[in-house]
Deep mutational scan, measured.
Amino acid sequence: STHNELEKNRRAHLRLCLERLKVLIPLGPDCTRHTTLGLLNKAKAHIKKLE
């Protein structure tokens, strides 16, 4: 159905954006896999440090 396709595309776009963010944020050497929340929290902390 159309709704399923739209949802699939939305999730794919979100995944792509999170992958791009992961490249930009210093995550530390001990981190190989992150939850979305963990990645967003690290991004928030990094932005605050830059301010």
Rank of each mutant, 00 (worst) to 15 (best):
I25D: 01
K49Y: 01
T35I: 10
D30Y: 11
I25H: 01
E19C: 03
I47L: 12
L37I: 11
L27Y: 05
L27Q: 09
L6V: 11
A12I: 01
R11G: 11
S1R: 03
C17N: 04
T32A: 13
N9D: 09
T35S: 12
L16R: 13
D30T: 13
E19W: 01
P29T: 14
A43Q: 01
K8W: 05
L39S: 01
C31T: 11
I25Q: 03
P26C: 09
H46N: 05
T32H: 09
L14W: 14
L27S: 13
L24I: 13
A45N: 11
R10I: 07
A43M: 12
H3W: 03
K44G: 07
N4H: 05
L50F: 14
R10G: 06
R33N: 05
P29Y: 14
H34N: 12
L40C: 00
K48H: 01
R11V: 04
K42L: 02
G28D: 13
H34M: 10
E51A: 15
R15W: 07
R10Y: 09
G28C: 09
N4C: 06
R33G: 07
T32K: 07
L24V: 08
R11D: 08
T32W: 12
K22L: 02
H46M: 13
L16M: 11
E51S: 15
R15P: 08
T2R: 02
L37S: 12
H13T: 06
R33S: 05
L14P: 10
H13F: 10
E7H: 06
D30I: 13
H46Y: 10
L50H: 07
E19Q: 08
H3T: 11
G28K: 15
L27W: 14
H13Q: 10
C31H: 15
E5K: 08
K22F: 01
H13A: 04
R15V: 02
K42T: 08
H3K: 14
L40V: 10
A12S: 12
L39A: 02
V23T: 14
E7R: 09
K42C: 08
H46F: 04
K42D: 00
L39W: 13
K48T: 01
I47V: 06
H3F: 14
C17V: 12
N41Q: 02
P26N: 12
T36F: 13
K42Q: 05
E7P: 13
H13R: 12
L39E: 03
A45S: 07
N4A: 07
N41H: 12
L6E: 03
R11A: 03
L39G: 01
K42I: 07
V23K: 15
I25A: 03
L18K: 04
L50Y: 06
V23P: 08
L16S: 14
T35D: 05
N41S: 10
A45T: 11
G28R: 13
D30V: 14
K42M: 04
A43G: 03
L18V: 08
L21G: 00
H13C: 04
L24Q: 03
R15K: 13
K49Q: 02
I47E: 01
H3P: 12
T2P: 06
T36R: 08
A45D: 03
E5R: 07
L50I: 03
E19Y: 01
T32V: 15
L14N: 01
C31P: 12
V23A: 15
L6C: 09
E7K: 12
L40D: 00
L50N: 03
K48S: 02
S1L: 03
N41R: 11
R15T: 05
L18G: 00
L50W: 12
L16I: 09
G28Q: 10
T36D: 02
H3Q: 11
K22S: 04
E51V: 14
E51Q: 08
L50R: 04
L6Y: 07
K22N: 03
T32D: 05
K48F: 10
L21K: 01
K8G: 11
A43T: 06
N41T: 03
G38P: 04
A43I: 08
L24A: 06
V23F: 08
L50M: 05
N41C: 07
N4L: 04
T32Q: 10
I47W: 12
K22Q: 00
K42P: 01
G28N: 14
R33C: 05
R15H: 04
L24M: 06
L40N: 03
T2V: 02
K48N: 02
L27K: 15
T32G: 12
K22C: 00
K49M: 02
T2M: 02
I47G: 04
A12K: 11
E5N: 15
L27M: 11
L6T: 11
L14Y: 13
A12E: 05
I25V: 10
R10C: 10
R33Q: 10
A45V: 11
E51G: 15
L14K: 02
T36I: 11
L14E: 02
L21T: 01
C17L: 13
L39F: 13
H3R: 09
T32M: 15
H3L: 07
T35A: 14
R10H: 10
I47Q: 00
N41E: 09
L24S: 05
L27N: 15
L37Q: 09
E7M: 09
T35K: 14
P26G: 15
A12N: 08
R33E: 02
L18C: 03
P26H: 12
E7N: 14
R10Q: 08
R33F: 09
E7I: 04
T2L: 04
R20Q: 05
C17I: 03
R10F: 09
E5T: 11
A12C: 05
L16W: 12
H13N: 13
G38C: 08
D30F: 12
K8Y: 03
V23Q: 13
A12Q: 06
R11S: 05
L6M: 07
R11Y: 11
H46K: 14
S1E: 04
H46V: 13
T2G: 02
L40F: 12
K22G: 03
R15S: 08
L39H: 00
I25G: 07
L18H: 00
R11P: 10
I25S: 05
S1Y: 05
T36H: 09
K42H: 01
E5A: 06
L16C: 07
E7V: 08
L40Y: 03
E51N: 15
K42W: 08
R33Y: 10
E7C: 07
L6N: 06
T2S: 05
T35H: 11
G38Q: 10
C31A: 13
T32F: 15
E7Y: 08
E5W: 05
K48P: 02
L16H: 03
G38H: 09
R33P: 08
D30S: 15
A43R: 01
I47D: 01
L24C: 11
T2A: 06
G38N: 07
E7G: 10
P29I: 15
V23R: 15
P29R: 14
I25L: 09
P29Q: 12
C17K: 07
T36G: 13
H13P: 12
L39C: 03
L37P: 02
R20S: 03
T36C: 13
K42G: 05
L21A: 03
C17Q: 02
K48E: 01
L14S: 06
T35C: 12
E51R: 15
E5I: 08
K22A: 00
R15M: 04
